[in-house]
């Protein structure tokens, strides 16, 4: 095998040596080595390496820097740490993002190494940090029910305002489908309230359709007085129970 490739081997050797001429390291094959120089008057060039156990922290956290050097006498880390021994470790708590630089200087010159620690702001308070509100939460917050007068299924002025806001929300979420529940206070009969609740739910639906919400996104159900929001026999509670209430159709 070698025999067969001898010409190629030789060509490689020659080309390697010709490149080496430029750096004067390939003189050996050409000339015999000179006599060994006297014991090194020229010192070795220092080496330096620096690492951190984490390069990204939140403000207030600490990070451990670890370094090693060789052939150096003056060794320091900046900023803030200052002079250090040839090798070791320390913890730092940078207030802001910073680059730590290890500089090692010795007779043979100097070397340096850097590591960058990025500091992110601390987490905001949980409320601010909470994930984006879910559709359920948005729905609860933005969708307004319509309230009715005693024994009436007419949309009142305050209900027009509430339903306007509700319609805005529905327009922003065109995939949303809702059920309108018609509710009544406890004063009429079960049967009459089922019918009245049906009229209320239908009135709410009609009004939303008039605001441009497609009818096929809106279904209605009457619960009459069967699912009250409160149980007291007073006008405040009666008013709570006379309403068109929205729920998401899932």
């Amino acid at each position: 095998m070698i025999q067969q490739h001898r010409p190629l081997y030789r060509a490689l050797l020659i080309s390697t040596c010709s490149i080496a001429l430029f750096i004067a390291a390939c003189k050996k094959p050409i000339a015999p080595p000179p006599p060994p120089p006297p014991p090194a008057p020229v010192a070795a060039k220092p080496t330096a390496s620096l690492s951190a156990d984490r390069t990204s922290i939140q403000k207030g956290e600490s990070v451990r820097l670890t370094w090693t050097t060789t052939d150096a006498q003056n060794i320091s880390i900046a900023p803030e740490v200052g002079a250090v021994t040839a090798q070791g470790s320390t913890t730092v708590t940078p207030a802001d993002s910073a680059s730590y630089t290890l500089t090692a200087t010795g007779p043979g010159g100097s070397a340096d190494a850097s590591v960058r620690i990025s500091v992110t702001p601390p987490p905001p308070p949980p409320v601010v940090e909470a994930p984006k509100p879910s559709m359920d939460e948005l729905f609860l917050k933005e969708v307004r029910d319509a309230y009715f007068d005693y024994d009436k299924a007419d949309i009142r002025a305050d209900a027009r305002e509430a339903l306007g806001k509700t319609a805005d929300f529905f327009r922003n979420y065109p995939q949303l489908r809702v059920t309108i529940e018609g509710h009544c206070d406890e004063r009429g009969s079960t049967e009459y309230n089922l019918a009245l609740g049906d009229r209320r739910a239908s009135a709410v639906k009609q009004y939303l359709v008039s605001l441009g919400i497609p009818a096929d996104r809106l279904s209605t159900v009457s619960y009459g007085k069967e699912k009250p929001f409160c149980m007291q026999s007073d006008e405040a509670c009666y008013q709570q129970n006379r309403r068109g209430h929205f729920i998401q159709t899932k």
Partner: peptide, 9 residues
């Protein structure tokens, strides 16, 4: 029975 199948009960 009462029904709102076509609108008003």
């Amino acid at each position: 029975f009462s029904s709102s199948m076509q609108g008003s009960p």
